[in-house]
Design a protein around this nucleic acid. Structure first.
Lengths: 251, 251
DNA sequence: CCGTATGACTAACATAGGTTAGTGGCAGTC
DNA sequence: GACTGCCACTAACCTATGTTAGTCATACGG
């Protein structure tokens, strides 16, 4: 029996998958729109863990959508250091509007085995011709931007304990929003090094902080899954305020 | 004689101002578009330094554009710490698409005296009906996002010396792109505390680093203006690569 | 002109987090 | 069923940056 790296296949919205689930956060979409979006996930490609989806300098002519599994945006520094700037979960686009820019200024790689849909430009144009879809894409783009701002605060002004807690809360809310949590648990298939690369910490220090959180009974984090034993306390301790996710739902 | 906090009024693009200058980075705009954009700056309001333009929780129904002077996006933490997540210079929108989201998840304040244009929603819609303008707005949004990613790398994986140098290079390129540099100098009306709030550093440490840069003959930074004596060396030392600004111009 | 901010700057000391160099467990593989 | 590689985990030590508590110069309002 292997660790369940992939997400539950039972998409809660009845086949539409994470993308439809996510894009209906702000407003329900007409059936036609839902079907058109759900169709994107149909012929996704399987990819192994730790494979590049796109690399800095690439000029892709199609858009990538994470259907299943996890991926990360990252930049490499000359000295080999890596900074992860985003975690991508099912329903997230990798490069929604890359065609407006000349080329990628960062890379994206899978973290787990994953299913990734490749969507040709014309197909995206057909989708954005639907006003509700276009608006939902805008919403998703703006939330991505808000998450980036929130990460800057996390790295710049919170200590390691708060930052790690904050990240756990954010991922909990995002996973919940696409139906991938159960109680206060979710698949979190990150190594301690990857957590460190996202928060500007070393794996050694990430480990220290995790030990402390465990000893305090706050969380359980093992075998690629996180359980938050006391969500309220974690939120408090890390100064997490979900308003920047613009979800407007209850915990 | 007072310190010249405001930017040169002589907009290089013949009256269109920084916005037109910036939006033509990727492609020239038709005269009609240029005029429509330039008209936005016409009746901007004067604001004092350190005044809020919008605050977290606000639901503005119009868009703000920095016409002259500097502003900053920021978030405040419960303990009073501040993290600046963006510096806004002439030609930058504060909240281009706020109407898609419910409310602001961060605040924006002027840093210097500034001229800020208030643009009603209908007027923005009329502008985005012009395809080239819509595309240019997209470009601006995506570059803003790329800058956020770059800041995450800066704060997460570069030391203070590199991070400060990187910020100076970025602002140099952005100011140059709207015609607000002369040789390798530009108005940089930031206090050392504001630089620290952007990079997650204390003013004491910012001062230490600046002293070092000065002693090395790299820069001159005084009275609200920065001169980079050796741009190439600064770029090297800070690992700056302007590709993420998507400007495609020479230094 | 004098008082009051504000911001640049410094020194002495404290610490969160980095570095280096491991050990040990476990999963996959030939 | 031994090898291999990855990852969690630890210990001892180090340093970049934070903290506290100032001094000093300049700008501005009255």
């Amino acid at each position: 029996m292997s660790t369940p790296l992939l997400q539950a296949e039972t998409a809660p919205s009845g086949g539409g998958g994470a993308l439809v689930e996510k894009l209906q956060t702000i407003a329900p979409l007409p059936k036609g729109d839902r079907d058109a979006l759900a169709a994107l996930s149909a012929d996704a490609r399987e990819m192994g863990a730790r494979r590049n989806i796109i690399r800095e300098g690439d000029r892709p002519d199609h858009v990538h959508l994470i259907v299943q599994g996890w991926a990360a945006r990252y930049k490499l520094l000359p000295d080999g250091a890596r900074q992860i700037t985003a975690f991508l979960i099912p329903g997230d686009f990798c490069d929604l509007h890359i065609t407006v820019l000349r080329e990628m200024d960062h890379s994206i790689a899978t973290l787990t085995r994953a299913k990734v849909a490749y969507i040709p430009r014309e197909r995206m144009e057909a989708l954005t011709a639907r006003p509700d879809v276009a608006r939902a894409f805008w919403w998703a783009t703006l939330v991505d931007e808000a998450v980036l701002r929130s990460w800057i605060v996390n790295i710049g002004r919170r200590d390691a304990y708060e930052a790690i807690g904050h990240l756990m809360c954010e991922l909990y809310m995002r996973m919940k929003n696409v139906g991938l949590t159960r109680d206060h648990s979710y698949e979190l298939p990150l190594t301690q090094e990857e957590v460190g690369d996202a928060l500007g910490l070393t794996p050694v220090h990430v480990n220290r902080v995790l030990q402390r959180m465990r000893s305090e009974g706050l969380i359980r984090f093992a075998r690629g899954a996180l359980t938050i034993h006391d969500y309220h306390r974690l939120e408090q301790a890390s100064g997490f305020n979900p308003n920047y996710l613009h979800i407007d739902q209850k915990v």
